[in-house]
Design a protein around this nucleic acid. Sequence first.
DNA 1: ACCTGAACACCGTTCAAGT
DNA 2: ACCTGAACACCGTTCAAGT
Lengths: 181, 181
Amino acid sequence: MSTSDGGGAYHHGDLRRSLIVAAHALLRAGGVEAVTLREAARLAGVSHNAPYRHFASREALLAALATEGFRALRQALDDAGRRAEPGGRLTALGRAYLRFADADRATFRLMFGGVVEEAGHPDLAEASGAAFGALRSVVAEREPSAGAEREALRAWALVHGLAHLVADRQIDAERAEACLT
Amino acid sequence: MSTSDGGGAYHHGDLRRSLIVAAHALLRAGGVEAVTLREAARLAGVSHNAPYRHFASREALLAALATEGFRALRQALDDAGRRAEPGGRLTALGRAYLRFADADRATFRLMFGGVVEEAGHPDLAEASGAAFGALRSVVAEREPSAGAEREALRAWALVHGLAHLVADRQIDAERAEACLT
DNA sequence: ACCTGAACACCGTTCAAGT
DNA sequence: ACCTGAACACCGTTCAAGT
């Protein structure tokens, strides 16, 4: 009801969301360093100070972006896993992982760039844990033998490394996908 | 002669180097966002404007840090390759790569974080190319068969992914090294 | 609750000088 | 050549108000 009642007094039914959308646009366009509270506020049409009602600091806004990124990644991994036959599940998840990195390089880098530390951002830690959990469980299901943990870690690292190389434009997404077997 | 003649008029025989050292300390202590020209100048004992004699912009300073990082990485890879027997060369390089990421996480992230683009920084592009070349040549020497390119890329991605996981503190360096076989 | 304007200490960058 | 001080437009963050 608060979203569409058209009241004129407050600009937004959901300023928090507007700020995240604006910040995401800034992130995609110019990387982390282009994400500023003041510019996000400008894009959302509010004063430079309004964001503090929703984010305690610039880092909190960045943490929210990273959190959304991990949720989207987890969603993509889950969808890929559901659509694949059991035998091809790991490859399907790997492809989804690589496509995520390729489609939103800036967010991928924010998620893994160390600018926001998970400590002190429980939502972020939870979202990141959930995304890794989705990947790990599928890896584990394919490697139930002895030495499974090491093989699971290798598979994870391979996908993760390929994703970084894709995000850094060192290789293109197709070559990366061909490495998944 | 200019380094130690103790002339009092100019603070430094090599302000450029002093600034890089200062910026590196800032990078290690607080990540990319903590690297500012003004603070580096302060640490070097010069006015906030002096750095512009040596770096055209903040990004140029960051590019210099990344360049030094790639040179150090290349050095570490070369040393590791020289010390290893031919059969264990790839593993040795992988270990050196992981140790580099573990020892200087912030620089590793700067090198691969996308904040500085290689285009427009030829020194950086050259240093990065040289480091990758060292890795690639050893990978290629171990995989001379058909499908070699794909296997080389897999090996590279594995090491790179492990290094990122180490830099992000998702796994520790020992577990990562155990994955190199 | 949610928003605003003024204020403070920072930063990158430029300019006009000084030796 | 190399350095300085003043200046400008930004930014994060805080404070005192307004509805």
